[in-house]
Computed example of a mutant assay.
Amino acid sequence: MRTVISFRGALHGTRSKWEYVLEESGRKRFFPYTAERRKLPGRIQSAIFSLDKAVGTDAYYRLTFTCEAEKHCYWWIDYYDGAGQLLPDCNGQVLPGQKRYYDEVVYVNRLAVSAQLAFVSKGAVRVADISLRKITARQAAEWCDRIAAQLPGLDFQAPQDAFRDLPRTALALQNGTPWNIVMLGDSIVNDTYHSVFQALISREFPRSRTNFVNSVRGGTGCWYFCQEENFQEYIQELQPDLLLIGGISNLNYPSGLDDLAAVANRVRSAGCECAIMSPGPSLDWRVQDASAPAAHLPASDWLQSDDRKYLKIYQQERELALAQNLPFWDISIPVNQYRGQSGMPWGHFNRDPIHSNTIGKQQLGRIMLEFFKTAKMPPDCGPAKHASS
């Protein structure tokens, strides 16, 4: 492993060169991160540093550190392209309470050339012994395996014809043709992207030369991406060979279904393959016992739950995919049914009320892997089932 950034000992003082960011009235002020400022809520950040990778290539990195947080806290990585423009971030959970050791892995796409580490906390935070090292895809996949070991009974199998209408992508995965795969959507899509499933795909298809890019904007769906300027920025400029559209925000506006269809059909008419990923998990829909928040929960069925908003989005997008003859990757049922049957405490899979933590992301990554595995299926595997559950 090649070290990209490292700091031994407690992270404070001028030696660390980290900053404390104070935001007041929409303006940011930057101060040296001293021992006194460890007691304050807010954001601390490193200097921007090179990712030590060739331009136009992806890479994997292992982030380790110890942290003691008084309240809710995130570890955070901001990425920048060659022009210094901010790209979609990656962040994860730091548990409040006693000091813990964290071992995380991130996948960084071909656009990023530099990054900035940060911690964002609602209370005092103490960080020490930070290291960011470049690792191989094989090592990243092995890390995924260790996290997946915390998901007993995750035995989802994707429909065998999931790649029936994605033949060129299926061929590229197996013959090594360079292939740009763009994941379009909101922060829920960003979580799926940051499950590091790309390393699992690399292991499953050793000849593949895929480049995955997350083209995301928080709370945003195709009602935004269909607008010409945004279509150019978020889709066309990235030159996708496969566009995966997902998230929970596509139907935020009445025109949402039509806009989703418009984006999918426009890219297909330009020769790009396209699939819809059903909404990933967000709010923990299981009934919480407020008197025992850490208690295990009884088994429950998402399809029979009160999660009506997302059940409706799921059904509407499923029907659209069928009507438009679009591949429909059903993430919603396997991820929510597993969580419902797991019995784990409320919020076990989340880093905040909306977003998945490392365990929750890995569940998403394993589901994505199962869909990609079907690229090995013969083209005559049966009639297409674009909207099958």
Rank of each mutant, 00 (worst) to 15 (best):
L244I: 15
C222K: 03
N211S: 09
L200A: 08
I235R: 01
G219D: 06
E228R: 11
R203G: 04
G219W: 05
T220V: 09
N252G: 13
G219L: 10
C226P: 00
I248L: 10
E237A: 15
L257Y: 06
T192N: 11
S255V: 02
V196C: 10
G221A: 12
Q227T: 13
L242K: 04
A199D: 09
I245L: 02
N211I: 03
P240G: 01
F205C: 05
T220R: 03
Q236L: 08
N211Y: 15
I245S: 03
Q236V: 06
R203Q: 14
Y234H: 07
V216F: 00
H194M: 02
Q232T: 09
Q239F: 14
N214E: 10
R203E: 14
E229I: 02
G219C: 07
V216T: 15
Y234V: 03
I245F: 06
C222W: 03
Y234E: 02
E228C: 06
Q236H: 12
N230V: 01
F225L: 04
S202N: 09
F197R: 11
F231G: 04
L238M: 05
G221F: 05
N230H: 15
E204H: 15
W223F: 08
E233K: 13
E233C: 06
S202E: 10
R207M: 08
Q236Y: 10
L243I: 06
L251P: 14
D258F: 00
L244F: 11
W223D: 13
I248S: 08
C226Q: 14
N230Q: 12
N252R: 08
G247C: 07
F225E: 03
S195G: 10
L238R: 15
Y253Q: 15
Q232L: 07
L257D: 02
G256F: 02
G221I: 07
N252V: 13
C222Y: 02
C222N: 13
N214P: 13
T220M: 00
L244W: 12
E228T: 01
N211C: 07
T220W: 04
F205W: 03
L257I: 12
L257F: 06
R203I: 14
P206Y: 12
F197C: 01
Q198N: 04
D241K: 11
S195I: 01
T192E: 11
I248R: 15
C222E: 10
W223L: 05
S249R: 09
N250C: 09
R209T: 10
T220K: 01
C222V: 03
P254C: 05
S255C: 08
S215I: 02
I248W: 12
T192F: 00
T210G: 07
E237Y: 00
S249D: 02
N252M: 11
G246H: 06
S202I: 14
S195D: 03
R207I: 05
G246D: 14
Y224E: 04
S208C: 14
G247A: 09
L238F: 11
D241V: 04
L200K: 12
F205S: 11
S249I: 11
E228M: 08
G256L: 02
Q239E: 14
G221Y: 09
F197S: 04
T220I: 10
L251S: 04
L238Y: 11
E228W: 03
D258G: 15
I245P: 01
S195N: 06
L243H: 09
F205A: 08
I248E: 01
Y193H: 06
Y253S: 11
Q236I: 04
E233N: 08
N250G: 09
